[in-house]
């Protein structure tokens, strides 16, 4: 699919990149980072204009980020509120406090270094009620860094574009694998500690 999309860039150019970036912000499996990086290569070769590419990427990110946030706000917030009234109340409360305390850092990281996690953080922020203004400002800043980074990489290394694409593919997969290992390992560790605590309490 990636090659098919890449072949469409010289024809449909910026519109294709804008739509791809917006869809990727909703967690749809579109190789946006590789498209943007290759777009940078096309800009270096004169097929696209660099500032227009950056603008298109940023526009795609704003549309996608806002859609994810508001979808989660509309659809997820009532579910979270209902769960909060039930047995999961303390967990939801802790999650909301965490998003309030560290949410902006999570948004910035998930828009830059940990970009594969971006859509999920956007959904969480919308559902858990991180303030829209703060979310939007940080998402836009992170998005601008991401767009400049990937497009710049393609622009500077246009002569090694296929090697960079392979590198990005592996790096993004690696970020997801590290997140999965950290999440599953952390969950197991917490469950084990909770169980050890219960056993100690029973013995006491």
């Amino acid at each position: 699919m990636t090659e098919m999309l890449l072949a469409l860039v010289p024809t449909y150019g910026l519109w294709l990149i804008l739509v791809a970036v917006a869809l990727s912000c909703l967690a749809l499996p579109v190789p946006a980072s590789i498209l943007v990086m290759t777009g940078g290569g096309f800009a270096a070769a004169g097929d696209l204009t660099l500032w227009q590419l950056l603008l298109a990427v940023l526009a795609g990110q704003v549309i996608g980020d806002q859609a994810a946030y508001h979808l989660a706000r509309l659809g997820g917030a009532p579910v979270i509120a209902r769960l909060g009234r039930g047995r999961a109340g303390p967990v939801i409360g802790r999650a909301e406090a965490l998003i309030d305390r560290r949410g902006l850092w999570a948004v910035l990281l998930s828009r830059t270094l940990l970009s594969p996690l971006g859509p999920y953080v956007a959904y969480l922020c919308g559902a858990l009620g991180l303030r829209w203004g703060r979310y939007s400002a940080v998402a836009l800043t992170g998005g601008a860094i991401w767009a400049t980074g990937y497009a710049g990489l393609g622009y500077v290394f246009a002569h090694r574009i296929t090697e960079i694409a392979a590198l990005i593919g592996n790096a993004l997969g690696l970020i997801l694998a590290v997140a999965a290992v950290a999440g599953l390992g952390g969950w197991l560790l917490r469950a084990w500690r909770a169980q050890a605590g219960r056993v100690s309490a029973e013995l006491a």
Binding site: P10, F42, A44, A45, G46, D47, A158, H159, R160, I161
Partner: peptide
Amino acid sequence: SPRLVGHA
């Protein structure tokens, strides 16, 4: 694209 090949 042909231009990208030329550049690269």
